[in-house]
Amino acid sequence: MAKTVFYSFHYERDVNRVQLVRNINALEGQPVLNAQSWEEVQRKGSAAIQTWINDNMAYKRAVIVLIGQQTSSRPWVIYEIQKAWADKKPLLGVRIHGLSSFGAADSPGANPFEKASVGSGIPVFDPTRTDWRGAIDTKATYANLAANLETWSSQGKVRW
């Protein structure tokens, strides 16, 4: 069976890219809520969001932060990183800005682990590939991610 992971990401901006990651089927992640379900959790307030995160992260073997352009600015992503660190779960990042969302790649974002203050050395993998002009090749990026995601998932850093 695939390794179970919790995916941390910026929902509004990156949910389409996250669905591509999930479609690789290399790992088993928590269900990605549709927009209506996510809004329902949000309407219930911070305590409900925190409970949803805690419940969905509880039995996962690792936490993978899917890093897009604005991921490091999201308070719940920072919470998820800090919780994973406190729970001593393997933690790593994978850059997803090079995946296609509605036909376009995005710009890379800042490292969210620096903002979360969880120490240094947490690995961040970047599957982004470019074409001969230097433009992001979203298909080659996806293929590179598909070929490496399972291997990368076993290289997370754990707090001792």
Results as ranks from 00 to 15, higher is better:
2 A>Q: 10
4 T>Y: 05
5 V>D: 01
5 V>K: 00
6 F>Y: 14
9 F>K: 00
12 E>R: 15
14 D>Y: 11
14 D>N: 06
19 Q>N: 13
20 L>H: 14
21 V>H: 09
22 R>I: 13
23 N>G: 11
23 N>W: 11
23 N>M: 12
24 I>T: 15
25 N>D: 13
25 N>Q: 14
25 N>I: 04
26 A>D: 03
26 A>K: 05
29 G>Y: 04
30 Q>N: 15
32 V>R: 12
33 L>I: 09
40 E>A: 15
41 V>E: 04
43 R>P: 05
44 K>N: 12
44 K>T: 04
47 A>Q: 14
48 A>K: 04
48 A>C: 10
49 I>S: 02
52 W>P: 01
54 N>V: 11
56 N>K: 02
58 A>I: 02
59 Y>S: 11
59 Y>R: 12
60 K>F: 02
62 A>N: 00
64 I>M: 10
65 V>T: 15
69 Q>E: 14
69 Q>H: 12
71 T>G: 02
73 S>A: 12
75 P>L: 04
77 V>E: 00
77 V>W: 00
78 I>S: 01
80 E>H: 12
83 K>C: 03
87 D>N: 11
87 D>R: 13
89 K>F: 08
91 L>I: 08
92 L>M: 14
92 L>W: 02
93 G>I: 07
94 V>G: 08
96 I>E: 00
98 G>K: 03
100 S>Y: 01
102 F>M: 11
103 G>T: 06
103 G>F: 08
105 A>Y: 00
105 A>P: 11
106 D>H: 13
106 D>L: 05
107 S>A: 14
107 S>G: 06
109 G>P: 03
109 G>T: 08
110 A>D: 13
111 N>Q: 08
112 P>I: 10
113 F>K: 01
113 F>W: 09
113 F>P: 04
115 K>M: 08
115 K>P: 00
116 A>T: 04
119 G>F: 08
119 G>L: 03
120 S>E: 14
121 G>F: 13
121 G>I: 12
123 P>D: 10
126 D>Y: 11
128 T>V: 13
129 R>T: 08
131 D>L: 07
131 D>N: 15
132 W>G: 13
133 R>K: 15
134 G>E: 09
136 I>Y: 07
136 I>H: 04
136 I>T: 15
137 D>M: 12
139 K>T: 12
139 K>M: 09
139 K>D: 14
140 A>I: 06
141 T>G: 07
141 T>I: 05
141 T>L: 05
144 N>E: 15
145 L>M: 14
145 L>Q: 02
145 L>K: 03
145 L>H: 05
147 A>C: 06
147 A>Q: 14
148 N>L: 06
153 S>L: 08
155 Q>P: 04
157 K>W: 09
157 K>P: 03
157 K>I: 03
158 V>D: 09
